[in-house]
Design a protein around this nucleic acid. Structure first.
Lengths: 338, 338
DNA sequence: CCGAGCCGATGAAACCTTTCAATTTCTGCG
DNA sequence: CGCAGAAATTGAAAGGTTTCATCGGCTCGG
């Protein structure tokens, strides 16, 4: 196997200078058609492949966008990623999907890596409310947009109004006549979780109910397994003190709770009504189709990507913006008998 | 904002040569502790961040592994990705997740990008049986391991025996007494799909049933939406010619079919028994918990990553290997009344 | 007190591309 | 046929890191 060919080899073979080869690659219109063809033929014959590292070294920044999410296993984030990727494509950028798994250390590790790579920019759903590592890389020049996580005016962000979503969910349960309701979600420091809870409390107050009507059951994670565990805790309670409805911070938890209820012979919504959050595809396919709060996930990704491009290009003149979408309640059988 | 600092600035500040700075970064044991501390302090003070592009230019190859999958929205692939990433971490490699979406063009685009980046290697679930682009980049020196896709001895691959999986699923349905069975899956050129179908046919023959007992319903994609569509086709059939069981090429299809049955008032498994494939988390949480063929997805990812590392390091002496895992049938209520 | 040998530090070369000012070639017009 | 101006091409420099052959200084044994 011969050594990989570089621009120099191509130039030699085509009988032109390396500058011309580079022009064929990057500014074809500057090169006379005849010359261009000759160079292209040489490229094909030698199997030349541009070295992106060298190009990037010269250019200063890469064409890669880092998308750091809390959980790739959560379809909400893959839907989001689809929106990001589609938009990135239009700008000739590629996306690397990084999984922080709710872990601040892994998150920081990914950020370091992205900074070393001189990523075009970073889209991140931070684990904690304040993330110093994000400020650091921004100050050093890597554009960052916060995703699904509203922020103060100091940086760009894209989010869905989680408080309103919480209100929708809770108001719906209250309207169904529930008096003992549990909130299932955690860890509480995650902003999305606490905002949804805050919205739920707001709805409670608005309905004139006492705060004790809402019990908070904090989970260790936002996945199906944690939902199953919490489901067992709920099912273990004596019927008279058991909540008659739960509002789960996301659909994975809700599916876990639902699964346990089914396994333990409790009826949904008869014994326990369930509201989820995100309205992932699987919510409507569940044992009992889930009532859920829908987020425009793909649009979220698209908006985030567009803000990032703006921030990267408009360097100085860029005005940080906070885009906020509104959620929507989708009612299904898990709260209302079909 | 001052210009980003480079090794030269660090060297100057610490009063050493650039070679020493590089050694602190890459071979700390070669540097006297006192000098090392001085350099590290300078790095911290200047906020120096290593430029990965320059490092890679020098090194010739990057530390990034490309994982090209058919559908990031399919939890099977995210589980796989989790296995890959965990193993990659151990080798100090990072993973970029690329979505081909069953589209050969997108697949090729991703491969080009990865080659330009001089990726450490590529793990790919190819769209088509023969993928010339893969051969091309391998010949030019990028290690490739085929995932979930057995191959001839000319390259490394990791897969699960899809034919056996198909046999398991079909044999199970036959054992339940079904005489009219449909296979739902597609596009057929996808190897996993056709192998599972081949296995199903094998089981049919082994049971001494006529080939006509199995109807193939080809789908355009392997997702929930395609499952719903096919579900409607099935439900539209008059009851006496309608199949009494379906074997779906993956769980997403199965969930789609199931969803339609529920919506149209048909009973599962009473009117239609359903078997899925992959045993994703959501399969057990479905309206009717799905019987499915389980694949060791995380192990698959781990094995693939290990083969890749071996191929990359053992350059010359490397022997291509084909690792094949065995699937397992998980029986739930979608085929057997609880 | 001298030389061998070791540890630590040095700095120039190499990696491959892109850019841009300078130079050559071409075109059209007087 | 010559010239101005446009178009096409050139070639050297720059970008930041790692490597490696080399050198300086120190220790230890003779």
């Amino acid at each position: 196997m011969r050594e990989p060919a570089g621009v120099i080899d191509v130039a030699e073979r085509a009988g032109v200078s390396i500058g011309t080869v580079s022009n064929v690659l990057n500014h074809p219109e500057r090169v006379a058609p005849a010359t261009r063809d000759r160079v292209l033929r040489a490229i094909a014959e030698l199997g030349f492949v541009r070295n992106e590292a060298a190009r990037q070294l010269r250019a200063g920044r890469g064409r890669t966008v880092g998308l750091v999410v809390l959980d790739v296993g959560n379809p909400f984030f893959t839907d989001l990623a689809a929106g990001v990727e589609k938009t990135a494509d239009q700008y000739g950028l590629s996306v690397v999907l990084c999984n922080s798994g709710d872990d601040a250390e892994r998150e920081e590790h990914h950020l370091s890596l992205l900074e070393e790579q001189r990523a075009f920019g970073v889209l991140i759903t931070p684990v904690a409310r304040r993330t110093p590592a994000v400020d650091v890389i921004r100050r050093r020049g890597t554009p960052v947009v916060l995703v699904d996580h509203g922020s103060s005016a100091r940086q760009c962000s894209v989010s869905v109004n989680d408080q309103v979503g919480g209100e929708f969910a809770m108001a719906h349960l209250i309207a169904q006549g529930h008096k003992r309701i549990a909130f299932v979600g955690g860890p509480l420091p995650i902003k999305q979780v606490s905002e949804r809870l805050a919205g739920a409390r707001l709805a409670l107050r608005a309905a004139g109910m006492r705060p004790g009507a809402l019990t908070v059951m904090e989970t260790r994670a936002l996945n199906v397994a944690a939902g199953r565990q919490t489901g067992d805790l709920i099912a273990d309670l004596p019927a008279r003190s058991r909540p008659t409805a739960v509002f789960c911070a996301n659909d994975l938890l809700a599916l876990g709770v639902l699964q346990t209820m089914t396994r333990r012979g409790l009826l949904v919504p008869g014994d326990l009504a369930i509201v989820g959050y995100d309205d992932i595809d699987f919510a409507s396919a569940a044992a009992v189709p889930l009532t859920s709060v829908r987020q425009p996930s793909a649009q979220l990704g698209q908006a985030a990507m567009e803000l990032l491009v703006d921030e990267a290009h408009a360097a100085q003149s860029h005005q940080h913006r906070q885009v906020v979408f509104e959620p929507e309640l989708v009612v299904r059988e898990s709260t209302v008998l079909g």
